[in-house]
Design a protein around this nucleic acid. Structure first.
Length: 472
RNA sequence: GGCCCCGUCAUCUAGCGGUUAGGAUAUCGCCCUUUCAAGGCGAGUACACGAGUUCGAUUCUCGUCGGGGUCACCA
């Protein structure tokens, strides 16, 4: 059975790149009746953040890409938290040590740092580990370890030849052995590094396809070497293009908004986020831009993945979100999703019919839900008269005064009000705009709003008349 | 800097030897219109460069250039 995984580390805010990876992994697994699993890679104890895991799981649920097996839902593949698997990692490291495919290195961090600096000063092009302890005899090594000298376990990478990685998207990628170094497998604190942990967990959990970001490509030969040393089955490697900042560098918190939670907060719908991520590097065969996870299940292929790293463009995400608001979601849906933002602004939403009318009128006018409270302000709060609106109001005050008695007695629907206003303008020899804009200003305090009909009906007769009177 | 990956409008992309190089976002213009949006229509903007291969290269090969990634006891 096909198994894919994402293996995020619980160090910070849930990252859009993680969701991006989840999308690839989940789509591919589910296309093949496989399982998509989530493993928390928490072996870096110094950067561990206890909140991070819960928030990550929440975000996966929110976007609708939950894992089939994870720390919360469980599954047959043992613990889904990496630190709970360290006994295995240590066992494998010991086996490699025993087999001679790995060795103890007693260098201290300070020593390594020192040597790195010297190498840098000498402008040496390669600054990996210098393999000082690679050829320590077994007796020496055992001795030093027995004496309590701290050590790490490093892989014994080949000194010559080459390692060829078959990548699904890029074909054969060749690395010369001379470019590889003896990476740390097990740290001095007894925890594994990513290299050992990820590969052994993938093996133990039955992961068949490693779908991960391109940044891992250059460490894949080491991963392949670990797998070979242990005699495991090699997974298929698929390195997907990296999401980029506008300056083309790897998407980062510093230069872009990478926080899934913040997109949620600003009122990006999860459907739009997933859709947008889906069009990063991938395109539908028929070119459509609006699609969901099910559509991906049907049409996704690696052949349609382009390799240039896509710039994460918040402008286009926002536009796409707008399309979801006005084309994909039902009005009821939009109302439900807008509600929290309006409540937060302190509006009284007890009149459901009014709320629905307001949202309906505003629908083509906002792209993210965070904009809705501001756009709806004059429906729920006293107007704030803007300067330009004030000027218009003064120009048209006479019209307003004349119109008031005509409006007071009538039923408050646009089909009865419209002929009154138009008739009045005609009789007064005024342009329609010269009448309409002052009304709009009186009603909203602005010169921009939904159509007059929608405005009048949503506001209701009483409020409208009051505001016009106030203006006169 | 070494190594690895990548290279079509500003951005996301279609294209898989012969196309007026298509679509989308953004920008601008027009239409609709009581305003602003939305919507419709339209405009400008791209095959990085140089050699090959070929009757013919955006498409295949190589080189150059450019961008990115990586070179931690982080993932």
């Amino acid at each position: 059975m096909i198994k894919t995984r994402i293996a995020p580390s619980p160090t910070g805010d849930p990252h859009v790149g993680t969701i991006y990876q989840a999308l690839f992994n989940r789509v591919f697994a589910h296309q093949n009746n496989g399982k998509f699993i989530l493993r928390i890679e928490d072996t870096d104890r110094t950067r561990f953040n206890p909140e991070s895991q819960r928030r990550l799981l929440e975000m996966l649920d929110w976007v609708g890409l939950p894992a089939d097996e994870s720390p919360t839902v469980g599954g047959p593949a043992g613990s889904y938290i990496q630190t709970e698997r360290v006994a295995n990692h240590q066992k494998y490291a010991a086996q490699m040590l025993e087999a001679g495919t790995a060795y103890r290195a007693f260098d201290t961090s300070a020593e390594l740092e020192e040597r790195r600096k010297i190498a840098e000063a000498a402008k040496a092009s390669y600054r990996g580990y210098d393999r000082r302890d690679r050829d320590l005899s077994k007796a020496e090594s055992d001795d030093q370890a027995a004496n309590g000298e701290p050590f790490v376990i490093r892989i014994k990478a080949p000194l010559e030849g080459e390692v060829i990685v078959q990548d699904r998207l890029r074909g054969a990628v060749t690395f010369k052995a001379t470019e590889l170094d003896d990476k740390v497998l097990l740290k001095a604190d007894g925890f594994p590094t990513y290299h050992l942990a990820a590969m052994s967990d993938d093996h133990d959990m039955g992961v068949t396809h490693v779908i991960r970001a391109e940044e891992w490509l250059t460490s894949t030969p080491i991963h392949k070497l670990i797998i070979q040393a242990m005699g495991w089955q090699e997974p298929e490697w698929i390195h997907t293009p990296l999401l980029r900042n506008p300056d083309k560098s790897k998407l980062s918190k510093r230069k872009s908004n990478t926080s899934v939670e913040s997109y949620k907060d600003m009122g990006i719908t999860p459907e739009a986020l997933v859709n947008y991520l889906g069009m990063m590097a991938f395109s539908m065969p028929d070119g459509r831009e609006l699609f969901n996870f099910t559509d991906l299940l049907e049409h996704f292929t690696w052949e349609r993945v382009s390799l240039g790293g896509p710039v994460f463009d918040i402008g286009k995400l926002t536009w796409l979100n707008g399309r979801y608001i006005r084309e994909v979601l039902t009005l009821e849906d939009v109302v439900v999703r807008a509600k929290p933002y309006l409540e937060q602004a302190g509006y009284d939403l007890s009149d459901t019919a009014k709320l629905t009318r307001v949202i309906d009128a505003l629908r083509p006018r906002f792209d993210t839900f965070s904009e809705v409270a501001e756009k709806a302000s004059y429906f729920y709060q006293d107007i704030v008269l803007e300067d330009k609106a004030k000027a218009k109001l003064e120009e048209g005050r006479g019209h307003l005064a004349s119109l008031l008695p005509l409006l007071e007695p009538v039923a408050w629907t646009w089909d009865v009000i419209e002929p009154i206003i138009k008739g009045y303008a005609e009789n007064a020899g005024a342009k329609l705009g010269a009448v309409m804009q002052p009304i709009r200003a009186a009603l909203t305090g602005k010169l921009e709003s939904p159509g007059m009909g929608e405005l009048l009906e949503a506001l209701g007769k009483e409020l409208c008349l009051t505001r016009i009177k106030n203006a006169v």
